[in-house]
Every structure is written in C-alpha cells, then in structure tokens.
Simulated scan of single mutants.
Amino acid sequence: MTYESIIIATEGFDSKYCIVKGGQGSVFRVELLSGQVLAVKKIHPLDNGELNSLKSFESETKTLLKIRHRNIIKLYGFCSHARHSFLVYEFLEGGSLSERLRNNEKAIELDWIKRVSIVRGVAYALSYMHHECSPPILHRDISSKNVLLDHEDRPRLSDFGTAKLLRPNSSNWTSFAGTFGYVAPELAYTMEVNESCDTYSFGVLSLEVIFGRHPADIVEAISSLSSTSEILDILLKDFIDQRPLLPSPVAEELIKITKIAFACLNPSPQLRPTMQQVSASLAKEKALLKNSFPFITLGQLIDAKLGSS
C-alpha cells in the first residue's frame, strides 16, 4: 500500500468515490489494483494547508495504533502529507448501524440474534478499552453512526477522533465531545470525563438497537425519575422494534440487555456499572425466568438491578 496507489485508485480523491461526508473529513471507497478494498478517511484541509483537525487526526492514529480487538475497526496505515492527509481502514460492507436501522428493509434483515450480537460486541470493545488498555482509553462518541458492520453484520467500533487516554495523576478535564442524544447528562455542567461517560452512551445505543430508533422518550423518563410516567407501564414486547420477526429464540436476552441499558443510564455516574461488569453480564448464560418476556414492563426493568434475575 502506497500513497501513490491510493491517489491513482481514487483519481485524486474524485467525489464519485466518496461514500460518506463528515465535518472533519470524507470517507472514500478505494479498490486497489490488487483487488483489495479499503476505506480511506481524507481529512479536510484548511486554506493555509494545515489540517482542519490536527488534534483529531493525531488522536485517531495514536489510539488505533495501540489497540487490537475484533470489535474495533482496523487501521492499516495513515499519511500526513502537505496535499492529502488520510487514514486507511478496513472496508466494512455493512455500513453504519445508524443507516441500517433507518432503512426498513435493511432493519428487517438485522434480526434479533444479530442485534444481540451487536450489543455484545460493542460492550466487549469498550470493556477492552477501559480495562485492558494501559492507560485506559475513552471513546467519547459512542453512537449508532460510529458502529460499523461487516458482511456478516458483526460490529466494529469506529471514529476515534475524539478518543482520550486516561493517564494517571493527570487532569481528565477536556473540551466537549460526543453526539447529541448520547452524551452523559453530567457533561452539561462538568468537563471532567471518565469511563462512566462511555457507559451512559452505550446504554443509549443498546436501547436504540432494541427499539429500532433513538430512545429519547425513555431516556427523558429515566432522567426525570418520574414513577408516574405512562411509559413505564408499557410492555417491553410492545416497545421493541416491530420490523424483525418475533424474537422468540433470544427474547430473554432482550430483557437482560434492556435491564443493563437502564442501569447504564443511571443519572448518577457513580451508580452506573463498569463496562467490565456489563460485558461479563452479557456473556453469562444465565437462566432467566422462562416465558417472562410477554409480561415484562419497562418500569420493572428500570427498577431492576444489574445481575438480578
């Protein structure tokens, strides 16, 4: 892989090869002469030739070069060049989770077994970043647009442009980062970040996978701590995404995931589970109450504690 081969394959980054346009850069589908297909994220330059977001570019390269996990996108290389600066990734045919959930036909294809696997995969990736990397790594922008799927709909966490290393004995105060609707509420009044911020975003993402849409109404009900909310009396089976076939094989798993997601959305950061606890709970083949799925309400799951039956 060379700089020249990527320039030739994209005809100088012609717009016809662009598949995603973002604020910091555009992503191109690149097929090399060897037949290998790559995703190349070209960073937008400024008029004076400097990178539009040098800090983001450096953060993403430094972070992804440190980590290797089956549920984190692979960075093959990067180029910092006066004319073109870009990052080279594996190409994932499934696109983003956000796109899949918005498209009715593709959402049907994303069956319940796949959805459970997606939630687990993201949890494993975050547990690895928080607990197995030294120093720990915060993603800071967990959302459905930053979860990519391969040809078998297995998830990869992507876009590490705002990732932060939690170095010991140093300040973890930082500027705001994240996607509206997924950001932990405490970041409205403090810029000190820790692992629980990612945990909160994971909770939102998990409910989005189960409900098929962003769970803004549920999140609001939890944050207000209102026990009188009518939402709490709704059956889980009536609130989940109705587009895939009924979730009979994994119905009890959906109860577990929803319960864990609600625990992750606790307004108090100190009371949220760690991603290590979350991934361990998701990995357990724990016997749940059989045939309880048709009768479980959202309120019962919000009140339930992580790890309880």
Results as ranks from 00 to 15, higher is better:
Ser85Cys: 03
Val20Glu: 07
Glu58Tyr: 06
Glu58Pro: 00
Val122His: 04
Glu50Arg: 15
Val88Thr: 03
Glu50His: 12
Ile108Gly: 01
Glu50Thr: 15
Lys66Pro: 02
Ala82Leu: 08
Lys66Tyr: 05
Ser96Ala: 02
Leu32Val: 09
Glu152Ile: 13
Asp111Gln: 10
Ser143Val: 02
Arg70Val: 08
Phe86Leu: 03
Leu92Tyr: 00
Leu65Ala: 14
Asp47Cys: 12
Ser143Ala: 15
Leu54Arg: 15
Tyr17Val: 06
Glu152Leu: 14
His131Tyr: 12
Ala125Cys: 12
Lys106Gly: 00
Phe91Thr: 00
His151Arg: 11
Asn104Phe: 06
Gly94Asp: 00
Pro135Arg: 10
Ser134Gln: 13
Val37Pro: 01
His69Cys: 06
His81Thr: 05
Glu90Ala: 06
Ile19Gly: 04
Leu33Gln: 12
Thr63Pro: 04
Leu138Arg: 05
Ser96Gln: 02
Leu75Arg: 03
Val40Cys: 06
Leu54Thr: 09
Ser127Pro: 09
Ser85Gln: 03
Val37Arg: 05
Lys41Thr: 04
Glu31Ser: 13
Asn52Trp: 08
Leu75Glu: 04
His44Cys: 07
Leu138Ile: 12
Lys62Leu: 09
Asn146Arg: 07
Tyr128Met: 09
Val119Tyr: 02
His81Lys: 06
Ile118Ala: 06
Lys114Cys: 10
Ile113Leu: 12
Asn104Thr: 10
Ser96Pro: 01
Lys16Val: 11
Tyr128Pro: 07
Arg83Gln: 12
Ile113Pro: 02
Glu99Met: 00
Lys114Arg: 15
Asp153Arg: 08
Leu87Gln: 00
Val119Trp: 01
Pro136Leu: 10
Trp112Leu: 04
His84Glu: 10
Ser143Glu: 05
Arg156Thr: 04
Val116Thr: 13
Leu97Gly: 00
Leu51Arg: 11
Ile113Gln: 10
Tyr76Cys: 06
Lys42Gln: 14
Asp111Leu: 04
Val40Leu: 06
Ser26Ile: 03
Ser56Gly: 10
Glu31Val: 15
Cys133Ala: 13
Ala125Trp: 09
Ala82Asn: 10
Ser15Asn: 11
Ile19Glu: 05
Asn103Lys: 04
Asn48Tyr: 13
Thr61His: 06
Thr61Met: 11
Gly77Met: 06
Ile142Tyr: 02
Gly22Glu: 07
Leu65Glu: 14
Tyr76Lys: 07
Glu152His: 14
Leu46Phe: 11
Asn104Val: 09
Asn52Ser: 15
Gly77Phe: 07
Lys21Trp: 05
Leu92Glu: 00
Val119Glu: 05
Gln36Asp: 14
Ile108Val: 13
Lys114Leu: 12
His81Trp: 03
Arg83His: 09
Phe78Gln: 01
Arg120Thr: 11
Lys55Phe: 07
